[in-house]
Write a protein that binds this DNA or RNA. Structure first.
Lengths: 314, 314
DNA sequence: TATCCTTACGGAATTCGTAAGCATG
DNA sequence: CATGCTTACGAATTCCGTAAGGATA
């Protein structure tokens, strides 16, 4: 048994059982991968993959049992490297953060800047994606840290820690009727065409829930993945916007006015997620702390240690 | 990085940093082991072992961090084999049980017999030792299941599950004054020379505690590791014995009489222990259930899953 | 027919054990 | 000076990629 065999199996399971693709991902030849898998199956005396003729189609029952263990081993191998590099390389390495647009655009820049000054020799990668894409990046190990308001807490394989709480605001072009100082209600809001986030992004679930709760059906004319697009269309007069409070900036968004809407929509919690069982580099913990000061290295360490079980409990 | 390197490191840490011994244990040459360790250290760019000149003396700080991860990987590698063999070999393999004399002699024979009938193709090994030795066998992976009344619950690395409860009895040669039907008290008992278990064995702790509690000092003339030795000396008239209730058999021990002593000494709980994070073969779970019917495979599985954390939490 | 896995083969790289060297208690 | 780790070297094995073969959608 060797690690290359395990990697081949894991990658095959991940990439839809296409060994040609696996070979490319592992920078090796396709027959090589084929052999690695066969050899492991022979050694364990089980078939991990079901084969339709020559093609792999899916996991067998033994394969389903064995795969989580293989993933744990490979993850621990990664942890081993990380732990070691914390002693040797100290402040060199890589840190990959996956975040939604909102976070990348408004919440992260400060922390990223501080981090780059503190750890100039760490290559920092920032991936942007939907909350579910972020979760997938974390689970596959392609990203170390994920930040989003939605979805992250739903995944068994992730540990999601609350970072900060925020509320939505309603925006409209200056001089718009909505900005007349009258109290803002859902009823009134529902009278206008609305521009806001797509479902699954940046607290959209709370927006939908609030309207549904009152039995109202808002007229959403444009839904976008980010506040910048929303603001652009609101400025054009397409409708009124609902965006995250932190996405509105009086200085920059001079043509718009904003009203706090924390009383209309449930408060949102932005979460930071890490795959269970992951051992983060020291600088990654440091980044987390600068981003969310409540998440001290000790707190994160404790959360991860508590979370080591369940990785394949039934 | 490969498994042989990891095994070399683990073994070196276990065997007092003597690479010659490690080589013997791993069935390889001593220079080989030396190389494996160096190569891993080079790859990780840390020193795992401190060296005094050429000899390894102890773990470095990085080594202390990294060793638990290495042990987890190797344990999971074993788990992988076990899981696979549950599908392939089904009912062939090995099962190593470590137990104290008391358990091996009185509690286990029934379960062992049933098990051998059920799984004739499983090689069953029975190691006998003190509770602490049993714990060490479990931790090192040399034994799969440990059974003892003492000590097992004290180890962080083990999961100890209660099997059954029992009480001590007092034995004496037939016709002995103690068997006159008068109620048995500690005071009366302390008046005779006593033969019982050694400290650390089969509920001896409860015996000591009971006397200490009343401020009495029993006169223990012989202490042995097992009830058979105790009974032998009691039969010779050396003194009265205190043994586990299940160790007395009216038919076999005709020259002795016994009195229940559950009212004198605290009730004992015999425990079955498994190393945390271990994945047991299906037949091992089956053995456990025949030995202690409350410990169903589901119950044991749940206990082990719950216990996966803490393996190196701080 | 194109895609995808397996088998076959030969060269390259790795691995491993023996033997010699050297430091330490 | 005996024990124990390292270095050196050569043989054996393993590993891996290319090329060809065969099955399936």
């Amino acid at each position: 048994m060797n690690f290359q065999q395990l990697r081949s199996v894991r990658e095959a399971a991940r990439r839809g059982f296409n060994l040609t693709e696996v070979a490319a991902a592992l920078h090796t030849s396709q027959p090589g991968v084929s052999r690695q898998i066969r050899e492991l199956e022979e050694e364990l005396r089980i078939e991990i993959f079901e084969r339709a003729g020559k093609r792999l189609t899916r996991l067998t029952e033994p394969g389903k049992t064995v795969l989580p263990i293989i993933e744990r081993i490979l993850q621990d191998a990664q942890n081993l490297h990380n732990a070691a590099q914390d002693f040797s390389g100290r402040d060199t390495g890589e840190l990959t953060i996956a975040a939604t647009h909102s976070q990348a655009r408004y919440a992260l820049p400060g922390a990223v800047n501080d981090f780059r000054a503190l750890y100039p020799r760490v290559t920092l990668n920032l991936h942007q994606g939907s909350p579910h894409q972020i979760a997938q990046l974390l689970i596959s190990g392609e990203a170390d840290i994920g930040i989003a308001t939605e979805a992250l807490a739903e995944y068994e394989q992730l540990v999601a820690l609350p970072c900060y709480r925020w509320t939505h605001c309603v925006i409209a072009p200056k001089g718009h009727q909505l900005l007349d100082g009258q109290p803002l209600t859902l009823e009134r809001l529902a009278g206008f065409p609305i521009v806001t986030y797509e479902p699954g992004f940046t607290g959209r679930s709370h927006i939908d829930a609030a309207f549904a709760n009152e039995g109202r059906k808002p007229h959403i004319v444009i839904s976008a993945m980010d506040a910048d697009v929303v603001k652009t269309y609101v400025a054009l007069g397409v409708g009124v916007g609902i965006v995250a409070g932190f996405a509105f900036d009086e200085d920059r968004d001079r043509e718009l006015g904003a009203i706090e809407a924390g009383h209309l929509f449930e408060i949102n919690t932005t979460r930071l997620a890490i795959r269970r069982g992951t051992l983060l580099r020291a600088y990654a913990l440091s980044f987390i702390e600068t981003f969310a000061p409540t998440l001290t290295p000790e707190a994160v360490g404790a959360a991860l240690a508590q979370a080591r079980d369940g990785s394949h409990a039934e």
